[in-house]
Amino acid sequence: MATGGRRGAAAAPLLVAVAALLLGAAGHLYPGEVCPGMDIRNNLTRLHELENCSVIEGHLQILLMFKTRPEDFRDLSFPKLIMITDYLLLFRVYGLESLKDLFPNLTVIRGSRLFFNYALVIFEMVHLKELGLYNLMNITRGSVRIEKNNELCYLATIDWSRILDSVEDNYIVLNKDDNEECGDICPGTAKGKTNCPATVINGQFVERCWTHSHCQKVCPTICKSHGCTAEGLCCHSECLGNCSQPDDPTKCVACRNFYLDGRCVETCPPPYYHFQDWRCVNFSFCQDLHHKCKNSRRQGCHQYVIHNNKCIPECPSGYTMNSSNLLCTPCLGPCPKVCHLLEGEKTIDSVTSAQELRGCTVINGSLIINIRGGNNLAAELEANLGLIEEISGYLKIRRSYALVSLSFFRKLRLIRGETLEIGNYSFYALDNQNLRQLWDWSKHNLTITQGKLFFHYNPKLCLSEIHKMEEVSGTKGRQERNDIALKTNGDQASCENELLKFSYIRTSFDKI
């Protein structure tokens, strides 16, 4: 039985969820670079991206490699990797027998973001014989899940209580170790020597080791999670996991709180800001991140802002960003909400898709409305799209047979046209069989910064309504002859009103 693990408890099935942008060198404390989270699957090609990484700022997932063999891993080693800020997950990587050479110096898994409450997941690794993470000293947050690894031993010899604050939620089941077939031998045991430290858990006094050649490092209890030197002297209180010299914040392997210019500090002093819960960055760093993602459509890219001495992905609820200094300031009234469309555009074809934009005031991208039916549609669209004030790209209304009016965009005031449909149009209306009105132009103002209007096959939309939009939106004169079809717009509506004058002759039985 794995020490510190839980057996036999019912657990939810383990679901495996399925960018080499360097964020800056980590400095003297770390020998390499800070790398983003990685999802490495199918083959070993991307694994080489770990070569210079000291910190993975995010998670590391290595999974679904069915053609790899043990010899493929023999020359692979990433000794610079010290810390993973989120979680480490391995799933069905064939041929991998140990992690001792792959990650010989991995010391800390912070667990800032977890995989279903777990910071370390080893699942269905069919050839893994031992973990071998002999320098792993601290899992700051989260638990361990090690399950269905039929060859995995050296679990009962690990004292997880020396690595985690609590072992109650560890789930370590259905491994070879369960069948008591392992016969784990710690260093020196074969020669009758006791080389590794022994600890007591559940009444068992057991030597602690990761492999037959690597003991588990056990520091004096007084050192807590700070770690200790090879001689057993406690590291500085700002260290986490390990250090090369005692009581020196510049000799830590990793930091308990924050890293700044080669030393570990309790908090980031001005003019620095907390970033990702582990390091200090200056304003320029946060500003660069903001600008890199301002026009990016890459998933996970955030326009970072500053709030409460932190550089964070977005302002919290009730705050909006001051564009001059990136500071989050309290909103006066309802907060603006910028919604970034991942692929640059979004099609609204149902109430469900409209709900995804609920509360958005600025759309960074283009909207395509293609709704053919739905219950209580006008009210639903207004509830979900009615706060949109600005669209950076274009607005396209296409084959939306259920629409009679666009009044559900009740606050839309600006279409920038930074991206144009077919390279020309910022407003595009095609084949809307029941569209009769755009907006009530006596109450609604709309500016279209650039781009043209396109109207074709809107049989109940009168040309007068379209011409009014040209005047109000500032697009009059931009359109070419064929942009607004004269014969297919309003051709099934009563669009022309003329005053009919009647004269009559009164007659009676005795007068003409």
Rank of each mutant, 00 (worst) to 15 (best):
H28K: 06
E33M: 14
E33V: 07
P36G: 15
P36A: 13
P36E: 04
P36Q: 14
D39R: 04
I40L: 08
N42Y: 11
N43A: 11
E49G: 05
E49A: 06
S54K: 14
S54D: 03
I56Y: 00
I56N: 00
G58E: 01
H59P: 06
Q61K: 11
Q61N: 07
I62K: 00
I62C: 01
M65F: 09
F66G: 10
K67N: 05
K67W: 13
P70K: 08
E71W: 02
E71A: 14
D72P: 15
P79Y: 10
K80A: 09
L81H: 00
R92L: 07
V93R: 01
Y94C: 07
Y94Q: 05
L96N: 00
L99E: 00
K100F: 11
K100P: 01
P104Q: 01
L106Q: 00
R110E: 04
R110D: 00
S112L: 13
N117M: 06
Y118S: 07
V121I: 05
V121E: 00
I122W: 00
I122H: 01
K129D: 06
E130V: 10
M137I: 02
M137R: 13
S143P: 12
V144I: 07
V144N: 02
V144H: 00
R145N: 02
R145C: 06
K148I: 00
L152K: 01
I158W: 04
W160K: 01
W160S: 01
W160Y: 05
R162N: 09
R162C: 13
D165I: 09
N170C: 09
I172L: 06
K176M: 09
N179Y: 04
E180N: 10
D184C: 09
D184I: 03
T189F: 13
A190F: 11
K191H: 03
K191P: 10
V200T: 12
N202I: 04
N202G: 13
F205W: 14
C209H: 02
C209M: 02
W210Q: 14
T211E: 15
H212A: 14
I222Q: 09
H226T: 15
H226E: 08
G227V: 05
C228M: 02
C228Q: 02
A230S: 09
G232H: 11
C234R: 01
C234L: 01
S237K: 04
C239Y: 00
P246V: 07
P246R: 06
D247H: 05
D248M: 07
P249A: 14
T250F: 13
K251V: 05
V253H: 02
L260H: 15
R263L: 02
R263T: 02
C268E: 00
P270A: 09
Y273P: 02
H274T: 15
F275H: 12
Q276S: 10
Q276E: 13
D277M: 09
W278T: 02
W278C: 02
C280T: 00
C280V: 00
F283Q: 03
S284V: 04
C286L: 03
D288W: 09
H290M: 13
H290D: 03
C293D: 09
C293M: 01
R297A: 10
R297S: 12
R298F: 11
Q299H: 15
I306G: 07
H307I: 14
H307L: 09
P313L: 10
S317F: 08
G318V: 11
Y319R: 03
Y319P: 01
S324V: 13
S324F: 12
G333Q: 15
P334H: 02
C335N: 10
